[in-house]
C-alpha cells in the first residue's frame, strides 16, 4: 500500500491501512464509521458498523463487521496482527444520525444513537480513548482516515468537509 491509495470500506465491512493509504466509507446514515489509529506505526483501521449488537443476529454465518460488539474486537485483532499495541490506539468516529425524525419512539428508528452508544461501550471495554467524534444529527456522512497522520475527515451535503 502506497501513499494516496484509497481503500474502500463497504457497509458492514472493515479494513486496515498503512503507509499513507486512505480508508474511506461512504453514505453513513444511522451507521457508525469507527476508526482506530496507531500513530507510531502509522496504521489505521476502519469499520462501517450497521447494528449495535450481535445478540439480534439471526443470520447463519454472522458478519462480524456489522455489529459494534463484534466489529471492534475484530478490527483490534487485525491491527494487533500488524504490530499495533492497544495502549497506543486512539479512536475517532462519525455517523449515528437519525435521518428520519418522525418515528422517534420505535427502537429501529433510534438505531443511530444506539449504534453510537454500543460503539462507545466497546471502546471503553478495551480502554481505547475516543479522541474525537462527529455523531448524531439528521444527515449523511462520508468519512476518510489518512493512515499517514491519523486525520479523520468528514464530508456531508450540508456542511462540506471538516477534519477532526
Amino acid at each position: 500500500m502506497t501513499e494516496g491509495t484509497l481503500i474502500k470500506v463497504g457497509m458492514a465491512d472493515l479494513n486496515i491501512a498503512e503507509g499513507g493509504a486512505v480508508l474511506k466509507t461512504t453514505g453513513l446514515g444511522s451507521c457508525v464509521g469507527l476508526t482506530l489509529y496507531d500513530p507510531q506505526l502509522r496504521l489505521g483501521g476502519m469499520a462501517h458498523i450497521m447494528l449495535p449488537t450481535s445478540e439480534i443476529a439471526r443470520e447463519g454465518q454472522v458478519n462480524i463487521a456489522k455489529y459494534a460488539d463484534t466489529a471492534i474486537p475484530e478490527l483490534l485483532a487485525r491491527m494487533k496482527s500488524k504490530g499495533a499495541v492497544t495502549g497506543r490506539l486512539v479512536a475517532k468516529m462519525a455517523g449515528g444520525a437519525q435521518m428520519f425524525a418522525f418515528m422517534g419512539g420505535s427502537d429501529t428508528m433510534r438505531i443511530g444513537p444506539r449504534n453510537v452508544e454500543a460503539t462507545k461501550q466497546a471502546l471503553e471495554y478495551f480502554k481505547i480513548p475516543l479522541v474525537a467524534e462527529d455523531t448524531g444529527g439528521s444527515y449523511g456522512r462520508t468519512v476518510e482516515l489518512n493512515s499517514q497522520n491519523g486525520v479523520f475527515s468528514i464530508r456531508s451535503v450540508q456542511f462540506g468537509v471538516k477534519e477532526i
Partner: peptide, 27 residues
C-alpha cells in the same frame, strides 16, 4: 403507510434505513 418523511441527502445514508430489518439476517 405511516406519515411520510422527506430527506435530501446521500443515497447510502437514506437507504440504509430500509435495510435494518434485513440487516440481522444477512448482507
Amino acid at each position: 403507510p405511516t406519515v411520510p418523511s422527506l430527506a435530501v441527502d446521500m443515497a447510502g445514508a437514506i437507504l440504509s434505513y430500509g435495510l435494518l430489518q434485513f440487516g440481522t439476517m444477512g448482507d
